[in-house]
């Protein structure tokens, strides 16, 4: 369907009074909302440049201690990133960052491939039990994750992985990735199922008439056609997995293998200990910024594909 849909571009047209009022009210509403969104984020950013002492002293005061040379008392930029340096190095967030990147990227790519395959079969092949499988997948969306943790642990412990130190999936990135894939699968299938159903039949049929097999049809024709859908589910999975907390908390217990959300959680929960709020805020920024960047780069794609996907 490529009818003329609403567009965001503005052409010069004479504007009526009621339009002006409506636009004015709309802008006020949107500005307030934007401030509500951006305000806390900017505050977090600002706070990450304050010392723990400054943070607990006042929430609204601007950073100053890290902008001052402690020896001369004059303005200096060389200490500005103290919190970031300590979060990145001594609090290990640098390492967590790379761990997260590896685990999330691999899991995302894998779940997109497997999810697309599964959704494609369910959406476009009719066979006994296909509805059952679909609903089984949907049911997975409603399960509380931590209920599965102990049995999951035992499953991972009994699944052999020859090259791992213990010979099993447990305690390895592979194990965590596979678990991420399994838990991201329902939503991915759910999303792509609807997407594959909307794709026109004609091209696939033409290809099959030309003698293309099932494999070829999928990889050569259907998958490329599903690109927009894959892009948005890819972004959703990236965000969702980047933010995953409960699974790593229980399954990924080696400190050197921590992921970011887990690192922040544990850092914030250190009881009976000097809590370095400065580093905590820096760690929060370190965790948020990559996902924000990914979102900014792909937001157009996300917007486009969501709208394409909803056209039925």
């Amino acid at each position: 369907m490529s009818t003329n849909t609403l567009s965001e571009n503005n052409r010069k047209v004479t504007v009526s009074r009621s339009d002006k009022t409506f636009a004015g009210v709309s802008h006020v509403l949107l500005v307030i909302w934007s401030l509500l969104v951006v305000g806390p984020l900017l505050w977090t950013l600002m706070t990450s440049f304050k010392t723990t002492r400054e943070i607990t002293a006042s929430s609204t005061a601007l950073p100053s201690a890290l902008l001052t040379d402690p020896e001369t008392g004059s303005f200096s930029l060389s200490y500005l990133f103290t919190n970031y340096i300590s979060a990145w190095t001594s609090d290990n967030f640098g390492r967590y960052f790379f761990n997260t990147f590896i685990v999330v990227t691999s899991a995302m790519l894998l779940v997109m491939l497997l999810g697309a395959m599964c959704a494609y079969v369910l959406a476009r092949y009719q066979f006994k039990g296909s509805q059952l499988i679909y609903y089984l997948m949907l049911a997975g969306l409603t399960f509380p994750i931590f209920l599965a943790i102990v049995p999951l642990y035992q499953v991972l412990k009994s699944l052999p992985l020859p090259w791992a130190p213990n010979g099993v999936f447990l305690g390895t990135f592979e194990g965590l990735i596979l678990t991420y894939v399994a838990f991201a699968l329902p939503f991915t299938v759910f999303f792509l199922y609807a997407f594959f159903r909307t794709l026109p039949n004609e091209i696939a049929e033409a290809a099959q008439v030309d003698g293309a097999g099932h494999w070829t049809t999928f990889f050569r024709i259907m998958l490329p056609m599903a690109k927009p859908g894959l892009a948005s589910i890819g972004i959703f999975n990236f965000l969702g997995l980047w933010n995953q907390l409960l699974l790593p908390l229980a399954l990924n217990t080696k400190e050197e293998q921590y992921v970011l959300a887990q690192g922040v959680f544990n850092f914030a929960n250190k009881a009976k200990y000097e809590v370095n709020f400065g580093s905590l805020f820096a760690a929060v920024i370190i965790t948020i910024v990559p996902v924000l960047i990914v979102y900014m780069i792909f937001q157009r794609q996300l917007q486009g594909s969501v709208s394409q996907g909803t056209m039925k």
């Binding site: 089984l136 599965a148 399994a182």
Partner: peptide, 10 residues
């Protein structure tokens, strides 16, 4: 994958 890591644990 889904059966072993999601359904079975539940």
């Amino acid at each position: 994958i889904y059966l072993v890591l999601v359904i079975y644990p539940f």
